[in-house]
Amino acid sequence: MEVITWLEWAFDAVLSVGLLWLAWRALASPDLFKAIVLFVSFGLLMALAWVRLDAPDIALAEAAIGAGLTGALLLAALARLRAIAFKDTSVPPPQFSKPQFLHWLLIFFLLWLGAGLGYAIWVLPPYSTGLSVAVAAHLDASGVSNPVTAVLLNFRAYDTMLEMIVLLMALLGIWSLGGFPPHTDMPTGSVLDTFSRLLVPVFILVAAYLLWIGADAPGGAFQAGSVLGAAGVLLLLSGWRPRVSLTQWPLKLALAAGSSAFVIMGLLTILYEGQLLAYPAAQAGMLILFLESLATISIGATLAALFLGRSSDHEENQ
């Protein structure tokens, strides 16, 4: 199998060089639209790299969130920037005049960080099983058979709890900027309409499948949530807006459900088991599924709400 090994080496080499090149081009491109397209391509190649490293869970998350939803968020931000620049010529375009010493400070910090990371990699033992033995030994008690889900939702569930809260905080930050953006009805055309109508049920089905399969195969709340979020983005793009009554407590409930479930579960486990998020082994599988379901809804709602964003006062005055 000599040829296959060579092919794999060649593939990995092209992948690594492509990643570095795309990253550089995305940073150096003066055209913001081009930079975003390059960033999305970078995310897709990064997902391939994770597949090559035998990490399909991260590959799924990278492709869905890193490339897909972040790309959509960046494009939406760019469209807003252009709309402001186009409508109002009295506001001067933002000037980014950086003092020279900031440049050098940045270069110094990056070199320092690069050297630190390089040193950390250099001193790593060439072969190490890491924590995988410990995870495998306790997998039976975790309630799931996918080790990644066992770590994310059981052994280190507080990491996931904090991630959920970070996501919610990001949305709160954006919401503090203003009210809902003014909605202007625009004809989007029958193709996009039909497309979203046919696809959104499929999105929901795929999200449920990813959530369920996460217990024993790559998948889980973040992947499922990002698929739900993508469905929301598609609906928003095709001109759909939630009814005003839905944007009050039903939306807020959906946004806060994941974080609150984690916090309540954390308190209950401290009370009954004496430790944060240490589930009783017999109910672990069910509790994980419960937490993940609520987390999926919250992640999906939060990502779609991030895409919708808020209007600044400036836009409202138009």
Binding site: G189, V191, L192, F195, L198, L199, V202
Partner: peptide
């Protein structure tokens, strides 16, 4: 099937 569907719709939107 999904890629067929998405590809056809997306290229229609780009062309339009």
């Amino acid at each position: 099937l999904l890629v067929l569907f998405a590809g056809a719709s997306a290229s229609h939107l780009i062309a339009k």
